[in-house]
Amino acid sequence: MVDRRDIGSWLEGPPPLGDGRWPGRRLGRPSDGPGSVARTGRRAGAIMIDWALCAVISAAFFNYNGFATLGIFALEQILLVGTLGYSIGHRVLRLQVQSLSGAPAGLGPAIVRTLLLCLVIPAVVFDEDQRGLHDRAARTIIVRR
Rank of each mutant, 00 (worst) to 15 (best):
G71P: 04
A44L: 15
P104H: 14
H90R: 04
L95R: 06
P14M: 01
R42W: 03
M1H: 14
G33V: 10
G108T: 08
L119N: 05
I72E: 08
I88C: 04
P122M: 02
I121T: 09
V97R: 00
D50F: 07
A59M: 14
A123Q: 06
F67L: 15
L133G: 03
A59E: 04
G13D: 11
A103L: 06
P109D: 12
A55W: 10
Q130K: 14
N65G: 15
V143A: 04
R113V: 00
I72R: 10
Q98S: 12
G8K: 00
P16I: 02
S36C: 11
S87D: 04
R91P: 00
D6I: 08
V2D: 10
N63W: 12
Q130C: 08
R5G: 12
A59V: 04
R21N: 13
L53E: 10
A123G: 08
V97H: 03
R131D: 04
S9G: 08
P122H: 00
G71Q: 08
S36H: 03
P16H: 05
G8A: 12
P23N: 11
R25E: 10
V92C: 07
R94Y: 04
I78C: 13
G71A: 15
V37T: 06
N65E: 11
L100Q: 03
A137V: 12
G13F: 14
F126R: 06
P23W: 00
R94I: 00
R4M: 11
A138C: 02
P34E: 06
L11Y: 08
G132A: 11
E12N: 05
D32S: 12
R26C: 03
S101C: 02
P15G: 14
N63M: 13
L107P: 06
D32I: 05
V56D: 01
G8N: 12
R25A: 14
I141C: 03
G71W: 04
V124E: 00
T114S: 14
V120K: 01
I47T: 14
R91W: 07
A105I: 03
V120C: 06
G102S: 01
L11E: 00
V124M: 12
I142D: 05
A138D: 05
V112W: 02
R145D: 11
A103C: 02
I47E: 03
W22M: 02
S101N: 13
Q98N: 14
N65P: 00
N63Q: 12
Q96H: 04
G41L: 14
R39M: 13
A105H: 00
